[in-house]
């Protein structure tokens, strides 16, 4: 396809994703287990008189939750994209590589410890704990990636690290004594529920800064995709870029785990779906599209999780797995076909 036509395709895909995420964002605000009419919602937004309970549901529950799904979904997808780039491995993602589980373990350790002393943890403290956990898992994965060259083995190793962390987390949670542990249990399964505006503000700041930096790395990332030796030759500081990729992807996935717990398959599946939509792997298009794609994906999944069996709420990972896992299978099959090409 000639360049001009391709540019039109990229732009329309980006436009589609933007419109889609806005649409589902409002979908998430309007629909819920308690039905509030669209007119009431509009009324609340335009500052008209409204039922106090409705107003609270919209402003203090649904809006922060939808915002969190938007921000964290994007962060997850982008984190997956960075990891796939880093490992030159299409089935890498924060969840399969055990990075989310590392964060989960660190956060629950910190929480249980502090709850025991009845100190509440600040939202930035959560991110720091999750980041440390993510980096320690990442450290193991990196050590392993030096030993094993095969990408499928690397993923299996990551899954094992994930299981170990999850087992220890369950252990910690089971033996912790506190009423708040119920919340902890919900969180450890992955959920966007219980978001406060304080949390949302913090995650917005972290995600915005990180995504901004990632976007400015799109040029070196495009060179890195060609392979390390060629990237080096065209003037990329490969070592520095690798460190940045690790730090940024860990930070993004840590931010998600800190607030919503581990969410599976978004990081791995969304970059592939977006790539299919765009028809390119150019980072300058992939980075914003992945973010929006992840946002839209999580908004859709959260809407399903909340409404399909309302008032019972599904864990978000249940829904993301239903949609994400087939994508991963498809990638694996296609990968094999292309090698025979």
């Amino acid at each position: 396809m000639p360049k001009d036509k391709r540019n039109i395709r990229y732009r329309s895909a980006l436009f589609l994703l933007t419109v889609g995420s806005i649409l589902f964002f409002f979908g998430n605000v309007i629909f819920g287990s308690i039905s509030i009419s669209i007119w009431d919602v509009i009324g609340i937004f335009t500052g008209q008189e409204a039922d106090i309970a409705y107003r609270r549901i919209i402003v203090d529950i649904r809006l922060p939750r939808a915002t969190a799904a938007f921000l964290l979904g994007g962060a997850l997808a982008l984190s997956g994209y960075l990891l796939q780039t880093f490992f030159h491995n299409p089935i890498a993602g924060p969840f399969v590589l055990g990075i989310s589980s590392g964060s989960k373990l660190a956060v629950s350790l910190v929480m249980v410890f502090l709850l025991g002393k009845s100190v509440s943890i600040s939202s930035s403290g959560l991110i720091v704990a999750a980041f440390v956990g993510a980096l320690s898992s990442m450290g193991f994965v990196l050590l392993m990636s030096r030993q094993v060259r095969s990408m499928s083995l690397l993923v299996v190793g990551g899954v094992m690290i994930g299981y170990i962390c999850t087992a220890v987390t369950d252990f910690v949670i089971t033996f912790a004594e506190d009423a708040d542990i119920v919340n902890l249990h919900n969180w450890s399964r992955g959920s966007f529920s219980g978001m406060s505006w304080e949390y949302v503000a913090m995650m917005a700041a972290v995600v915005a800064v990180t995504v901004w930096i990632v976007f400015f790395l799109s040029k070196p990332i495009s060179a890195y995709q060609l392979g390390e030796s060629y990237a080096e030759n065209i003037g990329v500081d490969v070592c520095r870029l690798r460190i940045l990729l690790i730090l940024l992807s860990s930070l993004l996935s840590a931010c998600v785990v800190a607030y919503a717990g581990p969410i599976s398959f978004v990081g791995i599946a969304v970059p592939h779906l977006v790539k299919l939509l765009l028809g390119t792997s150019e980072p300058i298009w992939m980075i914003p599209s992945c973010f929006l794609g992840g946002s839209m994906f999580c908004l859709i999944c959260d809407l399903i999780a909340r409404t399909v069996f309302a008032p019972t709420e599904l864990s978000i990972s249940t829904v993301t797995a239903v949609f994400g896992a087939p994508v991963v299978l498809w990638v694996l099959v296609r990968q094999k076909n292309e090698r025979q090409l």
Binding site: H88, L226, G227, Y230, N233, K275, T280, S281
Partner: peptide
Amino acid sequence: ARKMSVVFTERLKTELM
């Protein structure tokens, strides 16, 4: 990078390029 360019035997990794 503006002075020296290279072609190695190792394959370039590309996707949709």
